[in-house]
């Protein structure tokens, strides 16, 4: 995979504390050379998306090959943070201690404005529906780890 130099310009997203008072480290893959741009982006308040250099489509998850055109070269763009709910589920109880303080909670599958779909928790609300407009936020966990989540943007997306 060829990756262009990191360009962290683009939309800066809100950073909020994760309300569950937990550490993130056990829940995420440590950065590697292939994913450092994504993690650097979160640290700088941005959600970085891999974009195929051949067909121009963004993809989630990060991968060495484009699922649409098989292109192996990619660069990165900062997501606008806008998206629309395509599905959601609700957890009545926590199955990992990191979520005990926030149950019940809702997890969304969101189609980002840039095209790919991404899973993330719905923060600050219990109400989700398909078609709902949402915005990406970045949550900071107690160990300093950061991960994307969503908030309702108040209407249809």
């Amino acid at each position: 995979m060829t990756t262009s130099p990191t360009d962290l310009s683009g939309a800066v997203l809100p950073v909020r504390p994760y309300p569950g008072q937990a550490a993130l480290a056990r829940l995420v893959i440590p950065p590697s050379g292939s994913t450092r741009t994504y993690h650097d982006g979160l640290a700088a308040g941005r959600l970085m998306l891999q974009r195929c250099s051949a067909c121009g489509r963004c993809r989630v998850p990060m991968a060495p090959v484009c699922p649409y055109c098989d292109g192996e070269a990619a660069d990165w763009i900062a997501a606008s943070g806008r998206g629309q709910v395509v599905s959601f589920v609700r957890y009545a109880r926590a199955h990992l201690p990191e979520f005990e303080a926030i149950v019940p909670y809702t997890v969304l599958c969101v189609q980002l404005a840039e095209g790919p779909r991404m899973f993330g928790r719905l923060a600050g609300s219990d109400t989700a529906w398909i078609g709902q407009g949402v915005a990406v936020i970045i949550e900071q966990w107690v160990d300093g780890g950061r991960a994307p989540a969503f908030v309702s943007s108040g209407g249809a997306g």
Binding site: S87, V89, Y91, L96, E98, Y105, V107, C109, F119, I130
Partner: peptide
């Protein structure tokens, strides 16, 4: 997807089911 709280084999199935119903 643990950071999102999407946990257990049931999670992915539930997500697919919600989309399927819609």
């Amino acid at each position: 997807t643990l950071h999102a709280g999407l946990i257990l084999p049931a999670g992915g199935t539930a997500m697919a089911l919600q989309r399927y119903l819609h």
